[in-house]
């Protein structure tokens, strides 16, 4: 069972705010999902090794310099920019 304090701690790690009003609902939700996830505890996985797992082949590309994007283009999606930088302006 996760507690309200644990939900606050996880939310802080995830950079999400959970208001006091939402806390009860989110804790309930998360406990439901964690109870469902707990099913993995009872399954035997002996004999398997994550390191030995044959996942997809990873192919690295050659380490060569390639053209990049113009800074102005990249800055277009920012809420605010100036002098070639991203700008974040607080209340003060």
């Amino acid at each position: 069972m996760v507690t309200h304090d644990e939900v606050r701690r996880i939310a802080a790690l995830a950079k999400l705010y959970v208001s006091e009003e939402q806390l009860e609902e989110i804790t309930g939700d998360l406990n439901g999902i964690i109870a469902f996830a707990d099913a993995v505890a009872s399954v035997d996985a002996s004999g398997y090794d994550v390191e030995a797992e044959d996942g997809p082949a990873i192919r690295l590309r050659p380490d060569v310099t390639a053209a990049s994007y113009e800074p102005e283009l990249i800055l277009k999606n920012a809420m605010e920019s100036g002098d070639g930088f991203f700008v974040v302006r607080g209340r003060g």
């Binding site: 996880i10 939310a11 790690l13 995830a14 999400l16 998360l30 999902i33 964690i34």
Partner: peptide, 19 residues
């Protein structure tokens, strides 16, 4: 992040952060 993500996305981020 709290205003930009919807409830299901936040739920999955929280579960992922927890595990």
């Amino acid at each position: 992040r709290s205003e930009g993500f919807g409830p299901e996305v936040k739920r999955r981020i929280l579960l992922g952060t927890y595990v």
